[in-house]
């Protein structure tokens, strides 16, 4: 009897740090400032996100349909936006929303063998000529990336 009680006490004692830190262990899927919800309700997203992404993947890959609602790129853009210090989490880190959940659930994903794990460069598609052709939000003005233009400026006319 005494032995059992001791064991229980020890067990409780051991479990204490766990209960304290439980919230830290739970996965985190941050939303960017100014957003209060995802494109689907949380419980739907939790269960179905892979189906959404898989469906969108084939639509985009084979048909060129580029709606953003269920695209992996938009998941990354929103949930892995740069923090206030300007840093972005990489997939290897627990701060990355995908890894945060997937390591918790012990499910391996291979999306990021190929896909970028962070949003595109904020300077990407920076426009040289403001508002020339704003029919695509991402592509207002120049369709050349800033990087490309920089390179061209330095090496361009090699005639």
């Amino acid at each position: 009897m005494m032995r059992t009680l001791t064991l229980m006490a020890v067990g409780l004692l051991l479990a204490l740090p766990l209960t304290i830190q439980a919230s830290d262990l739970l996965p985190k899927v941050p939303l960017p400032a100014g957003k209060d919800k995802c494109v689907e309700p949380t419980d739907v997203m939790r269960r179905e996100h892979m189906h959404f992404i898989l469906h969108q993947r084939d639509e985009t890959m084979h048909k060129g349909i580029r709606t953003t609602k269920h695209s992996l790129k938009e998941c990354i853009n929103c949930h892995n936006a740069p923090r206030e210090d300007g840093k972005v989490a990489h997939i290897e880190s627990k701060d990355h929303f995908c890894n945060s959940c997937h390591s918790y659930a012990a499910v391996t994903i291979d999306c990021f063998q190929c896909h970028a794990d962070k949003p595109e460069n904020t300077n990407y598609r920076h426009s040289l000529v403001e508002n020339t052709l704003p029919h695509h939000p991402e592509m207002s003005g120049s369709a050349l990336t800033k990087d490309t233009l920089n390179v061209l400026a330095t090496k361009g006319d090699a005639k």
Partner: peptide, 22 residues
Amino acid sequence: CVHRVDKDGTPACVEACNKAGH
């Protein structure tokens, strides 16, 4: 550059060639 073409863009190589004046 299918991602550009899908958004009415032009492949990067073509743009660069024109930009370089060739």
